[in-house]
C-alpha cells in the first residue's frame, strides 16, 4: 500500500507550507482550532482544493497527474455537510460510491450496506433515516468504492456517543483491512483514544505530529488552543478536563 503525502502545500490564507505523511492501515486524526486549515488540508489530500504551492503525492505520483476517475477509485472523500439533495433509496445512495468504476456492483454495495448494519434499511428513502443512520449510509457510500484512502471531515460531529463509537468501530475495521483512514476531529478525547497518529494544525501550519499522547500533550493544547487543560484516566479511555 502506498503512502499519501502532502509536500509543502500552501493555500493562500488557509495553509502555509504544510508537509505531512499519512500511513495506510492506520487512523490519522487532524486536529486544531477553528480556522486552522483542517478541512482545507483534507480537501487537498483528495485533490479538491486548488493549491498555490506544493503538491500531494500518492506513492510517487502527484495527485494532479492522476485522472479524476482514477483518483476517485483510490481516494474516498466524505464531506462534512452530509448533503443528500433528493429522497433516494439508501441502496441508490450507497451505489453512488461505485460511480468511479462505472458499475453498480450489487455485491459490493450489499457488502458496504452490511458492514454498516444497513441491510434492513436498503430500500427505505433516506428521508426516513435518523441522523445516526444517515451518517452510516453516507460512510457506506464511500466504502462501496473500496478506496485505498478514506478521508472524512468531522464524520462524528452530529452523532451521539453511542453512534460515535459504532462509526469508529467501522473505521477501525477499515484500517485493519489496510485502508488509510484520515479524519478531521474536533473532539480531542476521541482523537486521543482512537487515532494511531495525530496531526495538529495551528494557523495554517503543522504544530505537532506523532502518537496521540505526544501530539495532544497538555503543553501543545496550551500552545495551539490557548487552553489550560489536563488529561485524566487510563490510555485508551482518557478524558480532557479544563483547569
Amino acid at each position: 500500500m502506498m503512502q499519501l503525502a502532502a509536500r509543502d502545500i500552501t493555500v493562500e490564507g488557509r495553509l502555509n507550507g504544510v508537509s505531512a505523511t499519512f500511513q495506510p492501515g492506520t487512523i490519522t486524526a487532524i486536529c486544531g482550532p477553528n480556522g486552522a486549515g483542517k478541512s482545507t488540508l483534507l480537501s487537498a489530500l483528495a485533490n479538491l482544493a486548488a493549491l498555490d504551492a506544493g503538491q500531494v503525492l500518492l506513492g510517487d505520483t502527484a495527485l494532479t497527474a492522476i485522472a479524476p476517475q482514477m483518483r476517485a477509485q483510490r481516494i474516498g472523500f466524505l464531506p462534512q455537510d452530509g448533503q443528500i439533495a433528493w429522497d433516494v433509496a439508501v441502496r441508490s445512495l450507497v451505489a453512488l460510491g461505485r460511480m468511479p468504476f462505472r458499475d453498480e456492483a450489487p455485491d459490493k454495495v450489499a457488502r458496504a450496506l452490511a458492514a454498516l448494519d444497513l441491510t434492513a434499511f436498503a430500500d427505505r428513502p433516506v428521508s426516513t433515516l435518523s441522523g445516526g443512520e444517515k451518517a452510516r449510509a453516507l460512510l457506506a457510500r464511500v466504502l462501496a468504492g473500496e478506496p485505498e484512502w478514506l478521508l472524512a471531515d468531522e464524520p462524528l460531529a452530529a452523532l451521539d456517543i453511542g453512534h460515535q463509537l459504532t462509526l469508529l468501530r467501522h473505521l477501525r475495521a477499515e484500517a485493519a483491512r489496510g485502508t488509510g483512514v484520515v479524519l478531521v476531529l474536533h473532539d480531542l478525547a476521541l482523537a486521543m483514544n482512537h487515532a494511531d497518529h495525530v496531526m495538529v494544525l495551528g494557523e495554517g501550519r503543522l504544530a505537532a505530529s506523532g502518537a496521540p499522547a505526544h501530539a495532544l500533550s497538555e503543553a501543545i493544547i496550551a500552545k495551539v488552543w490557548g487552553v489550560s487543560a489536563k488529561w485524566i484516566g487510563e490510555a485508551g479511555g482518557r478524558a480532557l478536563i479544563m483547569e
Partner: peptide, 20 residues
Amino acid sequence: GRGLDALTLGSAAARSLGVR
C-alpha cells in the same frame, strides 16, 4: 445524468467521485 446523480451528495462529494 451520472454527474447529476453525484451532485445529490453536494459539489465536493461529486468532484471526489470523479465528476469534472
